[in-house]
Simulated scan of single mutants.
Amino acid sequence: MHQRKIHHTSVSLTDLGFGASVIGNLYQVTAVEDATAAVEAAWEAGIRYFDTAPHYGLGLSERRLGAALRDRPRGEYVVSSKVGRLLVPNDQPRGVDDEGFVVRDDLRRRWDFSRDGVLRSLEDTLERTGLDRLDIVYLHDPDDHWQQAADEAMPALAELRDQGVIGAIGAGMNQSAMLARFLHETAADVVMLAGRYTLLDQSALDDVLPAARALGKSVVAAGVFNSGLLSRDRPAEGMKYDYQDAPPALVARAQAIADVCAAHGTTLPAAAIAFPYTHPGIINVTLGMRTSEQVRRNAELHDQHVPDALWDDLRAQGLIRSDVLTGRDGERDARCL
C-alpha cells in the first residue's frame, strides 16, 4: 500500500489506517479473537498504521492492539495513541462504562493536559500496549482545555519529539477550527480530523485544510463515513450521522450522491474513502474496523476506481462545495507544497 510522509518528520503512513476504537468494545462486545483477526487482516491488506487511545474501552483497545502486533517487526508499522484522558481507579463503579464502550468501569477517565499528566499517560500506554515507543501522539479532544493543552501538553510532546522519543505530535478532534489553531500556534506536525472533510461535510475547507497547506503540515482524515450514513451503497432512513439519527434531508442528499457515484461506475462508500485524498494536505484515511470481514471490505473499497469526473459532477450539481479540489487540482497543489 502506498505510503505518505508526515511533512517535516520521518514518519510515513499507509493510505489506509486501522482505527482501533471498535476493538475496544465500542457500542458492542467484540471477541478478542475477532479483534486479533481484524489486526491480522489489516496487516495482510498492507495497512501499517494503527491508531488507538486510552479512552477506547478504558485501555482495552490499547491492550488488544499491542498484543496483536507483538510478533510483528517493530520497524514496519506505525502506532499512534493519545493523551488528555488519564485512566484512574473508579471509586463509584456502576458495572459498565457510560461513555459508549461495553467494558467494566473499574477505571474512569480524568481530563489532564498537564505536563505530568502527559508523561504519566504515555507511560501507562506503553505498559498497556507492550510497545517500546509510540510513533505519533495526539492530544485527544481538547475542546474545553485549549489553554492547558497548548501551554503544557503540546510543549511536553514537542520536547519528547525533539529528543527522538516520539516521531510526530498533534491533536485529534471532531471539530476543525481548533485543529487549525494547533497547526498555526503550536508545534503540532499533524492533526487527526474526524468527520469534517467528507462527502457530507466540507467545513474543514474554512480553517484546518488551508492552515495545513499554508504551513506544509499534514492531516489524517477519520470519520469519513460520518457514523455510517456513507458506509452503504444505498443510504436509508434510520442510519446514523455524527452519532445521531440522520435527518431526512441528509439521507436524501446522501442518496443523491450515491446516484451520481453509480452513474460513474463506483459506489458511495468507495467515494467516501477516496474523497479526502483529493486534498493535498490529507495523507491518510483511518477507518474503524472491528472484524476481518470489515477490513477486507474497506481494503476493497479503497482499491475501487473512483474517477476524477465524479467530483466535477458532484460540484456541478451542488452536492459538494464548489471550492472542493478535484484530484487534478490536488495533484497540482501538492507539487506546490
Rank of each mutant, 00 (worst) to 15 (best):
P155W: 11
E123D: 14
R181Q: 13
I169S: 03
S176M: 09
A171R: 07
V165Y: 11
E123S: 14
R115S: 04
D132T: 04
T125A: 12
S176I: 00
L119G: 02
A168H: 06
S114T: 05
R108T: 02
G117K: 04
L193H: 05
I136R: 11
G164Q: 14
L179E: 03
E159I: 09
R110Y: 07
R196T: 00
N174E: 09
I136K: 09
L157Y: 08
E159F: 09
V165T: 10
D141V: 04
T125I: 11
P155N: 10
D106F: 15
L200N: 02
W111A: 02
Y138S: 05
Q175N: 13
F182V: 01
V190L: 12
G195K: 07
N174L: 14
I166A: 01
F101D: 00
R108L: 10
A149T: 06
R196W: 04
G164C: 12
A168Y: 02
G172Q: 03
L160S: 04
S114P: 14
D201W: 09
E123W: 13
A153V: 09
A171C: 13
R128K: 15
Y138V: 06
L199M: 10
M154Y: 12
S176E: 11
T186L: 14
D189G: 03
I169T: 01
D143M: 15
A188T: 00
L107P: 07
G172E: 01
H145Q: 14
W146R: 13
R133F: 11
T125H: 09
Y138C: 08
A187L: 14
A158Q: 13
R109T: 00
G130V: 07
D162E: 10
D106G: 14
A180N: 03
D124T: 01
D116M: 14
P142M: 09
L193N: 03
Q148L: 12
A149G: 06
R133P: 11
L107E: 03
H140V: 05
D141S: 06
D132P: 13
E152G: 02
M178Q: 15
R110A: 03
Q202W: 05
A153C: 12
F113A: 00
I169H: 06
T186A: 11
D189K: 11
L160K: 15
T129G: 06
D116I: 07
D116S: 14
R104F: 06
M192V: 00
R110P: 09
R133C: 09
T125G: 02
V165A: 14
A158F: 08
T186N: 10
A187H: 13
M192N: 05
V165M: 15
S203T: 04
H145F: 12
M192I: 01
I166F: 08
Q148S: 07
F101H: 13
L119S: 05
S203C: 07
R128P: 04
M173R: 10
L193A: 02
D112S: 08
M173Q: 10
A171D: 04
Q202R: 10
E123Q: 15
V191W: 06
M192L: 15
G164E: 11
G117D: 02
D151S: 13
L107H: 05
H140D: 03
L139F: 05
Y138G: 02
